[in-house]
């Protein structure tokens, strides 16, 4: 395997559409829940341990070679609101385009053919990691990191926060990312014996609610 491939996959500049999404931060800023570095950190921490853990589990399971179609259903079951399902599939399509060009593999081709309108993004990322020869844990790390780095970057743009504060915040969350990625990979290990129910299913109802509301805004900077 090439560990460098993980850096490529986790890089915010990887052209897979993520830059246009705030991970719920735009809506949270509008509600006043996120207004400075401290509240952003609380937001990211909450997101990481709920949605982030769930997505990292799906990514790890896909990277471990479990059936992506079963995982796609499992992702739907773990994404209760229609707006965020649509976002996950749209980002999955965009990730698929980038992944097929960057880490071509038969697994990606098969999933693209089965889900032409897009599979949930974490599984596509997991398959891309697999194609690059990375491990389930690597895929979980990439997803966990993306889960907080995306909102942090968006908040810098929305609130004109000091970008150095945002990077400091991400560094402080490193132990939590370690814990989430490790838990996600361990859960993915258990899928063979226990099925997809072994995967984390943590959710954040407030993220779901504001995500659905945000989709109905007529004026917004971010797609989600």
């Amino acid at each position: 395997m090439s560990r460098a491939a993980l850096l490529l996959l986790a890089d915010g500049r990887f052209p897979a559409g993520g830059h246009a999404h705030s991970g719920g931060v735009e809506a949270a800023v509008a509600h006043g829940a996120v207004h400075d570095t401290e509240s952003l950190e609380a937001f990211c921490l909450g997101r990481l341990h709920t949605t982030g853990l769930t997505m990292a589990g799906l990514a790890a399971a896909a990277a471990a070679g479990h059936d992506p179609l079963l995982l796609d259903d499992a992702a739907d079951a773990r994404t209760p609101v229609p707006a965020l399902r649509a976002v996950a599939r749209r980002l999955g399509r965009q990730m698929m385009r980038a992944a097929r060009a960057t880490f071509p593999s038969e697994d990606l081709e098969l999933l693209a053919a089965e889900r032409p309108r897009g599979a949930h993004q974490p599984l596509v990322l997991g398959l891309a990691a697999r194609a690059a020869g990375l491990t389930a844990l690597d895929a979980a790390y990439a997803t966990a990191y993306e889960n907080v780095s995306g909102p942090a970057t968006a908040a810098v743009r929305l609130l004109s926060l000091d970008p150095l504060d945002a990077s400091g915040l991400l560094a402080r969350l490193s132990p939590d990312m370690d814990a989430v990625a490790t838990a996600a990979a361990r859960a993915a290990d258990r899928v063979t014996t226990e099925g997809v129910d072994a995967l984390p299913s943590a959710s954040s109802p407030l993220l779901d609610i504001i995500g659905e509301q945000h989709a109905a805004w007529t004026v917004r900077l971010f797609a989600s």
Partner: peptide, 15 residues
């Protein structure tokens, strides 16, 4: 939608 970065959407990440 361009996430506050219109040049990114037409150049760096065109997906």
């Amino acid at each position: 939608e361009t996430g506050a970065c219109p040049h990114t959407a037409i150049r760096d990440d065109i997906s």
